[in-house]
Design a binder for these strands. Structure first.
Length: 549
DNA sequence: AACTAACTCAACCGCTCAACC
DNA sequence: AGGTTGAGCGGTTGAGTTAGT
């Protein structure tokens, strides 16, 4: 460590304070950084200055920092004194590297709070906001470089659990007090039905949108031809990386595309009605609200008066300007670089302003996804022309063959924000030799299932009204759960009997995940309380959901 | 050994907010 | 009500250190 640090550490051994004498004051005033003409000194603190400050605080207590300079002879501004005291001279400071449990705590806290360093520091005795901030920023960079997600899956789930057990998720009013990051702006009167289920899974999405994750790279638009970070790795490494992370997220967004696409076409109109007939595009505008990801994107910052709240607030590169947004679905649009995404991730939940949530100019992952969706649509014809006789629709493609991989690569428009996402999905999750998903592979789809099910539910609510579980006056509720094949887009799989087995296996694998592994549905509180159980019926591809009141 | 890139961390800056006048 | 001041917070910068080539 630098001299600066060792200097401080030496001084803090035993929390002892140095007697201040006039020579120290002289020494403190004679530093190289001492500006002439009575200007305040800047730069590293000397031990003499530290001694003066410590002595002063011992005598007069903390606070009134501007008086320090006046009364102690220090040529430092009050701000600088406060910072020096708080970060280095305070007797209760814990020095040294973070312990593993502290690191985990920081991650947990960040998942809940976002970049609220001071609040996080309050939860970690002896640690300063600056320390935590530096740790976090370093960590983000490191993990981004490694292609790792910021939040480990267990922390995501833990956040969900804590969230579910601590509040009634059916109302924003209670939720925002505990987990501001989880919530859309509560200044807006948003019909809760549209968001009820989406809230539940929000904590998962930070990982999904994590700048370090492959998905994030895709979603937010790596401009490189590879697009998908992990896809550039050696397969073995990619597998290892992806498994160590949030399983299943790399590339899986493409699974959702048909849903988004359809939803954009049909749902937005209907949802628009539910919001008073305004003509905003729900699919677009909801991205910052509904897709919890970075704290900027998801934790309730759907409320900016700016067209792109998180973009403008964070001083993103100009590519985030409205001029360069996705104007129509046929035109690829520049998307934030990883660096800017990094910034997004660090943005605190509640700092964005109001009402951006429903701006038609919103931007973010969802737009990217929707763009991809449209790109996929557009590319269908193109692809089929190129590669006939093989159908360009995923559903008609047997998984796990090189021919098909090639096909997918054609299908996934390389210039699109999601890059090779479509190809990535099936190259990542489909066994080379087999057709069905094994447990590990199925497990990877778990978070995706969550993602998919959310969107399907929104769609359900739009088209059919509140879910049957909500409205059913009886205790037993049987609901036709989102069939995986529907979620994955029936058009993708088509009706080709040739690929029926693959499709069926995939369907059931995901269905089982949706139904069993990911054990909340119906009302989140019920699921978490164990009063709602689920079972996947492979014969009917229906998820039976029972409420056990 | 020399160079370079990445990392770490202390410190500064700009901003917001509350208290006070 | 409006201006001033102090305190605190979060983002950014830059110097020093470390690791890799």
């Amino acid at each position: 460590m630098s001299d600066r640090t060792s200097e401080s550490e030496d001084r803090n051994v035993g929390n002892g304070y140095v007697e201040v004498d006039s020579s120290l004051v002289e020494e403190a005033s004679s530093g190289d950084n001492m500006a002439v003409g009575g200007l305040l000194k800047k730069g590293p603190w000397t031990s003499a200055e530290d001694a003066i400050l410590v002595d002063y605080v011992n005598k007069h207590g903390e606070g009134n920092w501007n008086a320090v300079q006046k009364n102690s002879g220090l040529s430092r501004c009050g701000k600088s004194c406060r910072l020096r005291w708080a970060n280095h001279l305070r007797p209760d400071l814990k020095k040294g590297a973070f312990m593993p449990d502290e690191e985990r705590r920081i991650i947990e806290l960040h998942a809940k709070m976002g970049n609220k360093w001071a609040r996080m520091a309050a939860e970690l005795p002896g640690r300063t906001d600056n320390e935590i901030k530096n740790f976090w920023n370093t960590r983000i960079k490191r993990r981004q470089r490694a292609g790792l997600p910021i939040y480990p899956p267990d922390i995501c789930l833990q956040t969900i659990n804590e969230n579910n057990s601590s509040q009634d998720m059916s109302t924003f009013a209670t939720a925002d007090t505990a987990y501001p990051m989880l919530l859309p702006n509560n200044n807006l009167e948003i019909p809760s039905v549209e968001f009820e289920y989406l809230q539940v899974n929000q904590p998962l999405y930070p990982s999904l949108l994590d700048p370090g994750s492959g998905l994030h790279t895709q979603a937010l638009g790596s401009t490189s031809s590879s697009g998908f970070m992990l896809s550039t790795m050696h397969p073995v490494k990619r597998l290892r990386e992806s498994e160590s992370l949030l399983p299943g997220f790399s590339g899986v967004v493409s699974d959702v595309l048909p849903v988004f696409s359809e939803y954009q076409d049909e749902g937005s109109r209907k949802i628009a009605k539910s919001f008073g007939g305004s003509s905003y595009d729900y699919s677009l505008s909801s991205s910052s609200c509904l897709l919890p990801g970075s704290h900027a994107i998801l934790n309730g910052d759907c409320s900016s008066s700016e067209p792109i709240s998180w973009a403008t607030k964070l001083e993103l590169p100009s590519i985030q300007n409205s001029d360069t947004q996705i104007g129509n679905w046929g035109t690829p649009s520049p998307l934030p670089s990883l660096e800017s995404v990094d910034t997004l991730i660090q943005t605190p939940p509640n700092e964005q302003a109001q009402s951006n949530c429903f701006s038609p100019h919103n931007n973010g992952l969802l737009e990217s996804v929707l763009y991809e969706s449209q790109a996929l649509k557009n590319s269908k014809n193109y692809s089929s022309q190129l590669t006939s006789p093989v159908s360009a629709t995923p559903g008609d493609v047997p998984f796990g063959t090189q021919e098909n991989d090639a096909e997918w690569n054609v299908y996934a428009e390389p210039n699109s924000p999601l890059g090779q996402s479509v190809a990535s999905v099936f190259s990542e999750y489909t066994p080379v030799s087999g057709s069905s998903l094994d447990d590990a592979q199925a497990a990877k789809l778990l978070p995706v299932s969550c993602f998919l099910i959310d969107w399907f539910k929104v769609k359900q609510e739009v088209e059919w009204g509140p879910t049957c579980c909500e409205e059913n006056s009886q205790n037993l509720c049987q609901m036709v759960s989102p069939r995986p094949d529907m979620l994955l887009g029936s058009s993708w799989y088509g009706s080709s009997s040739e690929h029926g087995k693959e499709q069926s296996n995939l369907t059931d694998a995901i269905g089982a995940l949706l139904c069993e592994d990911f054990s909340y549905d119906c009302r989140p509180a019920d699921a978490m309380a164990g009063t709602c159980s689920r079972q996947w019926d492979m014969s009917s591809s229906i998820c039976q959901i029972s409420e056990n009141h």
